[in-house]
Amino acid sequence: MEQTVLRQVVMEAIIRLRNERTDRSLFHVFQGKRSATSLQDAHFYGLESVFGMLPLKKERFEQVLRELEQAGWIRQEQLLIVTESGKRQVSNPFLLDELGGELRGYPILLWKRVSLLIQTIICLEQQTFFVPVQQDSGVKEWVRKQVKQLPKRAIWMRGIHQELEVAFSQLTEREATLISYRLSGQKTGLSFPQLSERLGTDLLSLQLEFVMAWRKCLRVLPESGLILSLGADIDQSRMTQSAKKTWEMLKQGYTVQEIAERRRLKKSTMEDHLVEMAMYAPIFPIDQFLSVEAYEEVVIVSDRLETFSLKRIKQELTQEIDYFQIRVALARKVVNR
């Protein structure tokens, strides 16, 4: 079976799940479902780079899994199991690490802004009617405001062109082609289906390749340049909005009980928020929720068993530590590694 980029990324993700999660769990990570369980899976198993980056339809996702199973690379039981043959198909560095990890979609939003702003400026300069290459209402409103702030459009476009020219020289020919063919001027850039047909690559693999190429491009662009300045205001926080509100109140001195009462949050929801904070906050008051000894034992057991399975870890603990405390400990373990 041909190893496409799509199959490679899916295999890499399954391997990282350590035979501990179901196909449903992986599907929700690919979809970017912002539930406590999916965020936790992404964080614990090193899948934040692929979170929300593969919005496959359920039928297509199941088809890919069947193909991998027919090739003898995985088994679908209650959990997704990687075979020895499957492990041999994947080698470091993993492709999925090139997909991002920005749970708020920073590269994608910046691309939408850049591509639409370039198209708009070129067409305005040429006084040409155009159909916006991006239909996101928020992006279109942002571009309208930006256009009003660019009195010297021709000079701005030359600066953008120079930045891209230098960046493209540091990419492979294919990476530069993927980006340049997608950009629109007076003529609309190629759609993914058109580009897929031209390059002879399956559509989903091509979309993944594009994301990797664009992220690589962002890494080589000047930090103080024109293009990266267009994304300076993009929220890159990984917490959900609700958890961020809880986090802000906690920093203001409210107790967990006070926050739960003021926000009318259930105990389970409050615990989910606290685990999110433990995952993403640079500083977290872990000692308010479990002792140093309890934290260390959870980490030791997790490392010894090479697992993030809450049930397996709890069975091996010598202290009375509940599932919420185990989740907090594992969240900080990943941050501290």
Results as ranks from 00 to 15, higher is better:
residue 2 E to T: 13
residue 8 Q to M: 07
residue 11 M to K: 03
residue 14 I to W: 02
residue 17 L to V: 02
residue 21 R to G: 00
residue 22 T to W: 08
residue 25 S to E: 08
residue 33 K to Y: 04
residue 33 K to P: 01
residue 35 S to Q: 04
residue 36 A to K: 05
residue 38 S to K: 02
residue 40 Q to T: 12
residue 50 V to I: 14
residue 52 G to T: 08
residue 52 G to C: 11
residue 56 L to S: 01
residue 58 K to R: 15
residue 61 F to G: 06
residue 63 Q to S: 15
residue 64 V to E: 15
residue 71 A to I: 05
residue 80 L to D: 02
residue 80 L to Y: 01
residue 82 V to M: 13
residue 82 V to K: 04
residue 86 G to K: 04
residue 86 G to P: 12
residue 87 K to G: 00
residue 88 R to D: 07
residue 90 V to H: 07
residue 94 F to V: 05
residue 101 G to P: 10
residue 106 Y to P: 06
residue 109 L to S: 03
residue 111 W to K: 08
residue 114 V to D: 01
residue 114 V to F: 15
residue 115 S to P: 00
residue 121 I to R: 02
residue 123 C to Y: 00
residue 127 Q to Y: 03
residue 130 F to K: 07
residue 135 Q to D: 13
residue 136 D to C: 06
residue 139 V to L: 04
residue 141 E to M: 11
residue 141 E to Q: 15
residue 143 V to A: 07
residue 144 R to S: 14
residue 146 Q to F: 02
residue 146 Q to N: 08
residue 148 K to C: 03
residue 149 Q to T: 07
residue 152 K to I: 02
residue 153 R to K: 15
residue 154 A to H: 14
residue 162 Q to Y: 09
residue 163 E to L: 03
residue 164 L to T: 04
residue 170 Q to T: 10
residue 171 L to E: 09
residue 173 E to N: 01
residue 178 L to F: 04
residue 181 Y to S: 11
residue 185 G to E: 03
residue 185 G to H: 05
residue 188 T to R: 13
residue 193 P to M: 07
residue 195 L to R: 01
residue 198 R to D: 13
residue 201 T to W: 01
residue 202 D to R: 10
residue 203 L to Q: 09
residue 205 S to I: 09
residue 206 L to P: 07
residue 208 L to Q: 02
residue 211 V to T: 12
residue 213 A to E: 04
residue 214 W to D: 04
residue 222 P to V: 08
residue 224 S to L: 07
residue 225 G to S: 12
residue 226 L to R: 14
residue 228 L to G: 09
residue 229 S to D: 11
residue 230 L to R: 11
residue 242 S to T: 11
residue 244 K to P: 00
residue 245 K to R: 12
residue 247 W to P: 02
residue 251 K to Y: 00
residue 253 G to V: 10
residue 253 G to Y: 09
residue 257 Q to S: 11
residue 258 E to T: 05
residue 258 E to M: 03
residue 262 R to M: 05
residue 263 R to E: 05
residue 266 K to N: 07
residue 269 T to R: 05
residue 269 T to Y: 01
residue 270 M to G: 08
residue 276 E to A: 10
residue 277 M to L: 15
residue 291 S to K: 13
residue 292 V to N: 09
residue 296 E to N: 14
residue 303 D to N: 13
residue 304 R to G: 05
residue 313 I to V: 10
residue 320 E to P: 00
residue 326 I to V: 14
residue 328 V to E: 10
residue 332 R to G: 09
residue 334 V to D: 09
residue 335 V to Q: 15
residue 337 R to Q: 14
